[in-house]
């Protein structure tokens, strides 16, 4: 009779004080949850609270005055603020489109097996690993209108020297080139991961059926790698929207304040002018946009997941 008891049962009796799954789950979640809550909850509550105050961190003795939503209305009624949003939008659109077209094409080309591919691939990843501040200074050095190497190449092609960083329109493209240089590798990495995840027999079947390489790319490869590509797109979109390191190093926001992104302007309000209340309101607006964007993408992703 004793032997008939399933092994699991006796074992469970033998270790009566085994920690329950509930406890393990709680213990495992605790550190991550504690750190995330500490680092997010406190600043967020403060952010919402201070965004309704007329307050400067430099002048705490002066006290704070509750002004309701005036920080928001003041910011949103200022044309220079809207200009920053338009400029940031242009930058985000340009850089993400460039990174995506180049990144997906290069990742697709890297699907071919050839000698030394791993080494080339790793070298192609290098820009992403550099420190953003160094990347900014490096491109500023190369874009210098007097002695920069970019203008040397331009003169080799028979054009005159271009004032890359002194004219707002040019500076936008200069930073796009630098940003795309740094972050296209990230798109390549994720797109490669996506392409490798597609079962090879699907492509083989399409090939046997006589599908052209172009058809296979647009009808098989692209749709099947969509979930990862969407995530890559979302991450790049948000990072580009947050971008301020490159502008800090390359243009310093100039000429004037023509190449300040939203994040750059926020940094200025918070840490040059020290308008803490107004900066908080600005940060809330930025966060609303970012959370909105990501909710749209999460919805797209779950839809995509269901279709599969």
């Amino acid at each position: 009779m004793r032997q008939a008891i399933p092994a699991g049962r006796t074992a469970a009796h033998a270790v009566p004080r085994a920690i329950s799954d509930r406890t393990i789950c709680g213990l495992f979640m605790a550190p991550a949850l504690a750190i995330l809550l500490l680092m997010v909850a406190y600043p967020f509550i403060s952010l919402l609270y201070y965004s309704t105050l007329n307050f400067s961190i430099l002048n705490p003795a002066k006290g704070s005055e509750f002004i309701g939503l005036q920080n928001y209305t003041r910011l949103l009624s200022r044309e220079s603020v809207w200009e920053r949003f338009v400029f940031t939008g242009q930058f985000v659109l340009a850089t993400v489109v460039v990174q995506f077209c180049v990144g997906v094409a290069v990742a697709y080309a890297f699907q071919r097996n050839f000698k030394g591919r791993d080494l080339l691939f790793t070298i192609a990843m290098l820009p992403m690993m550099l420190c953003p501040i160094v990347v900014g200074f490096l491109w500023r050095y190369m874009f210098n209108s007097e002695w920069g190497v970019v203008n040397y190449l331009v003169t080799l092609l028979g054009f005159g020297k271009i004032d890359w960083l002194g004219v707002p329109g040019n500076a936008l493209w200069a930073v796009v080139i630098a940003d795309a240089w740094m972050w296209t590798p990230f798109v390549i990495l994720l797109a490669t991961a996506a392409f490798r995840g597609i079962p090879t027999d699907i492509n083989e079947a399409a090939e046997i059926d006589g599908a052209s390489p172009f058809f296979r790319f647009t009808r098989v490869t692209l749709p099947m790698s969509m979930p990862i590509l969407l995530i890559a797109f979302l991450l790049r979109l948000i990072d580009a929207f947050k971008q301020s390191d490159l502008f800090f190093a390359m243009t310093g926001g100039g000429p004037g304040s023509d190449t300040e992104t939203v994040a750059f302007r926020l940094g200025k309000i918070a840490f040059s002018h020290f308008y803490t209340g107004q900066a908080s309101a600005f940060a809330v607006i930025m966060l609303v946009i970012i959370i909105g964007l990501s909710l749209i993408f999460v919805r797209l992703l779950t839809q995509q997941g269901r279709q599969d």
């Binding site: 406190y42 600043p43 952010l47 991450l235 918070a270 966060l287």
Partner: peptide
Amino acid sequence: DFMFFALSTRMIPPVAVLVFYHVM
């Protein structure tokens, strides 16, 4: 909700919360 919350921490622009980290 936790998973979305964890991902969303990557989306926070540093400048937005820096003032309060400073205080904290």
